[in-house]
């Protein structure tokens, strides 16, 4: 078990089938705490499906998803219900298409993420109704944590806005702040840089590094923007058509033949018919 302590997430032989379609085919990888692990791959490679399996949206057809919480021990995510994955195992996620609570204020969005702590402190609402001190303290703590993340995401001056009225980039940051308010050990981000301009994208990189370095959370990142991926990832997993085709540090992945093939197509022209090749040679084109 000595090894397990240094692995945050251990995905083994994950397979997800929808009827005849194999969305993920026997994928295994590991993510370490305090590292940014990126999952990349062309459209339809199964990246978001992996997230959906991790966060309880789908029950995997085959596979084991073990999460080692540094304080609470090991959880098998494939056997847990959605809300328990967030509550007990400490996995938080954001979505490709933003899913804030648009008609709640920015601050409330962050406080709801601390629901379980508050629910306990409010003695299942009774103490909360009576305004007991214990509950008030918990409420204040929650507001402080929310404020901390507002500061980190530059949203402090908009704390009272309705979340739905925020500009797009701010909504993305708020979604990350909200995920962090659940005190996660693993943060799953689904294309956080989508739709951001270069300045916002840089700000996001800074935020993700901050989360990794200061909060010791493992970050699992799906991203299409290669400048983001190559710059901040410690470890990259590449998928194509539901299969893992490469796994390593950015330098390794960048030069991996399989990856180049998946993204850019074949380099060699092996599959040209023999006659065509001869013809090309004759004309001096190949």
């Amino acid at each position: 078990m000595a090894e397990a302590a240094t692995i945050l997430l251990d995905v083994q032989h994950l397979t997800m089938r929808f009827g005849g379609l194999v969305a993920i085919d026997d994928v295994s990888f590991q993510a370490e705490p305090g590292q940014i692990t990126a999952i990349i791959g062309p459209n339809g490679a199964g990246k978001t499906t992996i997230f959906n399996c991790l966060t309880g949206f789908y029950a995997p057809t085959v596979g084991r998803l073990a999460l080692n919480h540094p304080r609470r021990g090991q959880f098998l995510l494939e056997r847990m219900e959605g809300y328990q994955i967030a509550q007990k195992a400490g996995v938080a996620r954001t979505f490709q298409n933003i899913r804030l609570f648009p008609r709640m204020t920015v601050l409330e969005n962050l406080v709801i993420a601390q629901h379980n702590k508050l629910m306990r402190a409010s003695g299942w609402t009774v103490a909360g109704l009576l305004g007991l001190k214990r509950y008030k303290d918990a409420e204040r703590q929650a507001a402080e944590q929310a404020k901390y993340w507002l500061d980190q995401t530059n949203l402090t001056d908009r704390a009272d806005w309705e979340a739905g009225n925020l500009p797009y980039g701010a909504q993305r940051r708020l979604e990350i702040a909200r995920a962090m308010c659940t005190d996660p050990v693993m943060l799953c981000l689904d294309e956080p840089a989508a739709g951001l301009n270069p300045r916002e994208s840089n700000e996001l990189n800074r935020l993700l590094r901050f989360i990794r370095d200061e909060h010791d959370a493992g970050v699992l990142l799906i991203e299409h923007d290669m400048s983001v991926v190559m710059e901040i990832s410690d470890h990259i997993v590449v998928l194509d058509y539901g299969k893992k085709i490469s796994d390593g540090n950015p330098e390794y992945v960048r030069n991996d033949k399989n990856v180049i093939k998946a993204y850019l197509g074949e380099e060699e022209d092996d599959d040209l018919p023999e006659e065509v090749k001869q013809d090309l040679e004759k004309k001096g084109l190949a």
């Binding site: 996620r93 709640m104 709801i112 993420a113 629901h115 379980n116 629910m119 409010s122 909360g128």
Partner: peptide, 26 residues
């Protein structure tokens, strides 16, 4: 309006799945 239960209810009203992902027992 003021208690965690009510907040959870309002959250579930807007997006039940997301509320579950934040640890709310829907």
């Amino acid at each position: 309006t003021r208690t965690p239960l009510g907040r959870a209810q309002r959250a579930c009203e807007q997006d039940r799945k997301m509320a579950a992902l934040l640890g709310v027992n829907v």
